[in-house]
Design a protein around this nucleic acid. Sequence first.
DNA 1: TACTGCGGTTCGCATACTGAACCGTCGTTG
DNA 2: CAACGACGGTTCAGTATGCGAACCGCAGTA
Lengths: 269, 269
Amino acid sequence: MSSATKALTLLSYFSATRPEIGLSQMCRIAGRDKATTYRHLQALETAGFVEQIPATKQYRLGPALLQLAQVREATVPRKDGAKAALAALANATGETAHATLLSGNVLYGLCDCESPHHSTRAVIDMNVFPLHATASGLCTLAFGPEDLLRTAVANLEAFTENTATTETELEALIENVRLTGFGRGDKSFATETQGLAAPVFDHTGHLAGAVAVASVASRFTAELECSIKSELIIAAREITRNWGGTIPDAIEALWTTSLNNPTEMEPTS
Amino acid sequence: MSSATKALTLLSYFSATRPEIGLSQMCRIAGRDKATTYRHLQALETAGFVEQIPATKQYRLGPALLQLAQVREATVPRKDGAKAALAALANATGETAHATLLSGNVLYGLCDCESPHHSTRAVIDMNVFPLHATASGLCTLAFGPEDLLRTAVANLEAFTENTATTETELEALIENVRLTGFGRGDKSFATETQGLAAPVFDHTGHLAGAVAVASVASRFTAELECSIKSELIIAAREITRNWGGTIPDAIEALWTTSLNNPTEMEPTS
DNA sequence: TACTGCGGTTCGCATACTGAACCGTCGTTG
DNA sequence: CAACGACGGTTCAGTATGCGAACCGCAGTA
């Protein structure tokens, strides 16, 4: 481990719950020498990555991070941060993968990626994803801002006979998403399409969108669902990381339990 | 200079205008060896501070910065307290507005906001603001800690032919700022940029940074200057308030006299 | 084919990082 | 008060570790 790496890892010990760390405390956390840690902190301070609070002598993250984060945000649009993960997802599952982005009350299609494995694919061709009828939409409703539900119930268009058209039906679907950590669209948008989605988060800690796989219903099996879910987790983690966020622990826990108990799933219909 | 510092300085070479840098290019910019630079970039990559674009092998800023900036923002939410005021300032003046933050002896760019009014704008693209050559820097020298002057005179780089390059020249500029309450950068940093800045204070009662407007020199008139100054006062008051400080009475007095004296023109308040 | 510039690797050398020990200063405590 | 411990910060010998000249393979090109 290089000296620069060691210095940089010190930064990762700062968090919202522990924003200020003293020298001795940092030594204990990092398990390193005091003199070394001191020099590392000084190096970080000269670079503006940490600053020392004059009153308490404690260290906290510095202002240079804001500047660099701004440049990062300007240079890497979100679409680029999702493309590679989507391609991997489509390739691993053999199905069509796509990402959606929540902006205000609307869920936009951001980017999609078709798999070359099958001749019949689910074709994604939407600008706006209906919240109540797609896996991504249900995911957004389950883990996004609460007032989104009002927007959703204002438009419960019935795309298929499986579409939820009442508020209670919709709430049941959302509740299921909150229990499993995955959004499910069981032929609720198109009669031949089976959707699975996972939430994606950004640097504000809020839901930013979803990543989803659209499979053709006729070849959708329990094994495929399990495989898709595990790949979805990988993709959701990567996209979230690229967007500067972290998956909330609660959702990570949901994923592991819902992957280990595949008997939980109940086809609604 | 420690190895960690050397690695960290590489990050400062990324900017909005140069978001992606290859290895050889980085060597030239940093003036350092290729192997060393490569190791540094690798260390930064493992820490998530840069990432390599697979296609071009170039490096760009990484996603870890977003997370750390988020923590910083949660710890010290100064940026939030400045953004709204900057937007209003940019909108009212029709010019590019930005805020800077003093940390130690260094003046960092915190946040900037471009106005949509003009097609030609002053583009702010700096991590660190030179104290002797920018309106914000002069403001900081005039009203910030005294020993900052020593740091400033240690680096009197001439950016344009208008840049102050001697200590006496610099002191004359600072004296003018102390008389008017506004920092002025008359093409001293870029030949086409005219800067005006006002100081901002935090809860300790000391200077915390500056808020500034960068105008294009060719359209800079007395009327515009007057308008910018009155808007600057509003923005400085608001940001200072958001940062938990108050504008010292002495500076409020300077502002009112300097707005009324040099010209009969009344600002649109 | 030879040449140029690129990203990446090797390896011997000495620089600069390491960490045990130390210092001065706080609050606390018997 | 004096002893104590925890803290931030400093010193110094010894060696791990970073340094850079030289090199490799590749891709474009003239």
